[in-house]
Each structure stands twice: as C-alpha cells, then as structure tokens.
Amino acid sequence: MRHNNITLADKVLLSICIFLSFYSFVYVKEAMPKGSEVRIEVDGKLKYTLPLNADRTVELSGVIGRTTIEIKRGKVRIKDAPCTNKICIHEGWIERGSIVCLPNKVVVTVSGPDKNKGPDAISG
C-alpha cells in the first residue's frame, strides 16, 4: 500500500519550510538596505548618490570649505566640516533622515528602500 500518512519526513520538511519562511523575512530585512541610498547635495545641487551598504568616505568642497562624509556599516555621518558650530558632526551616525550643514550648504539625505520599483502586479 502507498504511504498515505503524515510521515516523519513530512514533519521535518514542514518544520524546514516554516523555518525558511521566517528566516527569509529576517534575511530580506537585513539585505534590503541595498535599496537605500545616500544623497549628498551641495548648494542645492546633487553631487553624489551612494549606496548605504558600501563603506566609503567622501570628501567634497562646499561653499566655505571641505566636508568629509563617512559611510560605514549602513550608517552615514559627517566626519569633518569647516563650520564653527559643528552641529552636523554632533548629529552623529544616521540611517534615515538627513544631516544639514548650513554654513557649508551640504545636505546628506538617506532615502529608504524604494519598494515600488517593480511591476504593480503579475499574476500567475
């Protein structure tokens, strides 16, 4: 007679599938910041668009001097700025929102993952 019960292999497989489902949620959440980008604007003009997940240090010249921007471990900060009050440096590391340096007219913005780039729907 054919096997027609819920076998041990079935249960193991079901557990694996449930685990995979949960794990994929966690995995995708971690992998997703790929969609996030850092936009650096100087004096209202977009200078750089960088991925948030690639560590990098960028030095650029603003209105009054050079600003150093550091991207590390999915976060971004202004490392060094020529201004006097250093507000932008005190903002520290950010992963969303933006840092604005008024004296040097540098704006660093983190845009979240764009989830609406794919097709609206493909049914199958």
């Binding site: 079901l14 599938c17 995979l20 994929s24 995708v28 992998a31 790929k34 989830k115 780039k117």
Partner: peptide, 25 residues
C-alpha cells in the same frame, strides 16, 4: 524575464515562501 530587479523579488520572496508553506500544507 520581467522584473530584472533583485530587490523587487527579495521583497515578495518571504511572503511567497510563507504563503507557499501554508497553502502547500
């Protein structure tokens, strides 16, 4: 064939896996 963007696939992947487990079961 159609999407070409791995992000769009990754976004739906967990939902499909979870739904596949439920409907498959």
């Amino acid at each position: 064939l159609f999407v070409g963007k791995i992000e769009a696939i990754l976004v739906v992947l967990p939902f499909l896996l979870a739904a596949g487990t439920v409907t498959g079961a």
